[in-house]
Design a protein around this nucleic acid. Structure first.
Length: 292
DNA sequence: GTCCAGGTCGCGC
DNA sequence: GCGCGACATGGA
């Protein structure tokens, strides 16, 4: 019997508002965050072909997921799997929490999310989005993601304004012209298309990579082979995969370290690494939540 | 018009 | 290894 609503069990310390806004992903289509009501929106296309607009909210000790379309039991299970991944419901960050306990300001910064950084259901989507953040402004990143989804994403029945992230097949089928004319990722068009084609041709299996359990350095090596993915993007994607030992060094991190630890003076990469070195396998999170 | 943004790549030294 | 310019796009 189809349902349009189900609950998701969450850890006692889980706060949807904190997790949803823990980094910028909530502002990239097909995610949307409504701060006033505390609803995380997402349009999702399921294996069954169902495309549905989800409204995720916290109701006390659980999450309520509302779906615009009827869901089979199979759909529901698929959605539950995806959402648990996106919200990191099953990730154990207790060791990081323990380390934070002795740093009052960091502890306060981590508290709302518990250190859970929102991610996308598929690594494919995260890879594309990370590429959309490089060498551009956040405003343009949002616009690029919105155009990609609006142009190629499958939509909710009867509502073309509600679209899911496009499948690799849909992206590959679109080809250069649509990217050049409509989606306009600039020079990133080529990287995204090349990666997508490799996925469609089976040369690249991101979902297998997620579950591979490969050592971090090997994951990093593989991510670096992707066109458009350099050290910064690789570190960000490792974070997506729950590997926090490496810092994503970009202008933001540099500015932060300079301001907070070097009086605004010049900072070398070595010095940036040194600041967070002692956080070991939690370095990325220690930086991410480092106040001020 | 010019500059450049939460980088990456290929080149030359 | 390290420094440097090019790279598409659109906002300031």
């Amino acid at each position: 019997m189809p349902i349009q609503r189900f609950a998701l069990q969450i850890p006692a310390d889980f706060r949807l508002a904190g997790v949803a806004t823990s980094h910028g992903w909530y502002a990239l289509a097909p995610y949307a965050w409504e701060p006033d009501s505390g609803i995380l929106h997402r349009v999702e296309a399921l294996l069954s072909g169902t495309v549905t607009h989800l409204r995720i909210s916290q109701q006390g000790g659980e999450l309520a997921v509302g779906s615009s379309q009827p869901l089979s039991e199979f759909d529901r299970r698929e959605l539950e799997r995806r959402l648990r991944w996106c919200l990191r419901l099953d990730e154990d960050l207790s060791e990081f929490h323990d380390l934070c306990a002795s740093h009052r300001t960091l502890y306060d910064a981590v508290l709302p999310s518990g250190g859970r950084l929102l991610r996308c259901p598929t690594l494919f989507e995260d890879v594309v989005k990370v590429i959309l953040t490089t060498n551009t402004t956040w405003t343009q990143t949002k616009a690029m993601a919105a155009r990609l989804v609006a142009t190629l994403g499958p939509h909710v029945p009867g509502d073309p304004s509600q679209r899911a992230f496009p499948s690799p097949e849909a992206v590959a089928a679109a080809g250069e012209d649509v990217f050049k004319q409509n989606i306009r990722l600039g020079y990133r068009n080529a990287s995204v298309l090349r990666i997508t084609r490799d996925v469609v041709e089976g040369k690249l299996d991101f979902e297998a990579l997620k579950e591979s359990g490969l050592p971090t350095h090997e994951l990093r090596r593989r991510l670096l082979t992707l066109p458009g993915v350099g050290p910064y993007s690789a570190a960000t994607l490792l974070m997506i995969l729950g590997r926090y030992d490496e810092l994503g060094i970009d202008t933001e991190l540099k500015a932060h370290v300079s301001r907070k630890y070097f009086n605004g003076g010049p900072v070398s990469e070595k010095q940036m690494r040194a600041v967070y070195e002692h956080w070991g396998r939690w370095r990325y999170l220690a930086y991410w939540f480092d106040p001020q």
